[in-house]
Write a protein that binds this DNA or RNA. Sequence first.
DNA 1: GTCTATAGTGCGATAGAC
DNA 2: GTCTATCGCACTATAGAC
Lengths: 215, 215
Amino acid sequence: MEEICRDTFRKNQDSIKIKKEAVAVKNLAAIFHTTLRLSNEKGFQTMSLRDLSRTSGLSMGALYSYFTSKDELLEMIQDQGRRLTLKILTAFIDIGAPPAEKLRAAIRGHLYLTEVMQPWFYFSYMETKNLDKRRQKKAIEGELATEKLFIDILEEGVRQKVFQVADPVMTASLLKAMLQDWYLKRWKYAGRRISVDQYADFLIGFMESAVRPAP
Amino acid sequence: MEEICRDTFRKNQDSIKIKKEAVAVKNLAAIFHTTLRLSNEKGFQTMSLRDLSRTSGLSMGALYSYFTSKDELLEMIQDQGRRLTLKILTAFIDIGAPPAEKLRAAIRGHLYLTEVMQPWFYFSYMETKNLDKRRQKKAIEGELATEKLFIDILEEGVRQKVFQVADPVMTASLLKAMLQDWYLKRWKYAGRRISVDQYADFLIGFMESAVRPAP
DNA sequence: GTCTATAGTGCGATAGAC
DNA sequence: GTCTATCGCACTATAGAC
């Protein structure tokens, strides 16, 4: 978390008025954490900056030292999440491994990442439509970029004849939907006492039976 | 659409101040249509009742003849969608048909319904977290009720040994996620020129290969 | 670097004319 | 049954003290 905030601080150093890194990182962490908590309860629009100020312990004036508008706060959080996703996912996928193993690693990587940062991903998903057109486009590109990782793995498997997939793009889309369900419907899986490992195991088995070549 | 609004009118006749059905149904249709359009662009919270008034052509005062608060408007729309979903889905599933056919019918029924009423379902999904606790519970019960339809079909298929499913509840959850993706990511499928029939065919094939008994 | 105080805007909701 | 006018309030954003 601290690392993420440091990253955000350095990327937005020109628009952030606070210059001491230690102070800025500490406060950014509080701002992000509180924003995610309040927004995921009742939505980003409904959360007033007064709420954020009260709950985070920073005054209204202090908040505006870290962003120039409420919309920019939204964008900062979204952007940080996107960059992290691509970084983690590509790190999870061993470039030299066979496709079947890559697929398993990519599914686990996605689930573990979104498990650890569930509020972040839930927030990004739910608030995307409240962004302006330009920022929405960036969000869409982010979704397609991670989907592309899965398409590439499926196509590689087809070429090596270890997968049989009628339509890699559609298959990757469905897989993405099932991966996202994990952080979108946490209430459901928590209620059923399903752990991220159980979900991962089941989803991997489900996918493998769907892409397995006919005998 | 008119039928839906008439249904809503009759169910909420005591809280709606307008007594002439023809007038009420016409205006309710305008209110719902405009609310869905504006909310799906920028969120229900962001849409002010002044926006709604301007776009729907009804004055502020007139709007308040149809609901007693902005929150009640949200609830009316959600509730109507839930009742319709259960009605249509159960109508689609032929009670006497074999499980494999039931599964196909349920998938098609869900997709066609959400295709025709996409804004309605998108709205319900996105705005659920903005409801109060009691109403959220109703929304969750609605989701579990439709999921139950799929669980029952899968379990019936297992009993008749035409399906092989390790975990019908998990399988139904994943299926639900894939069904919902159709109305949540319309931009993606529209961009790829994928029709609801193509999506249905693909998803049915995908599911059938996943539940097919090992030879 | 953070605070308090406040300007200015726009909201949800209602009363009363027509 | 619908409209206009308006109330009281909470909001985002900023200016200036510390």
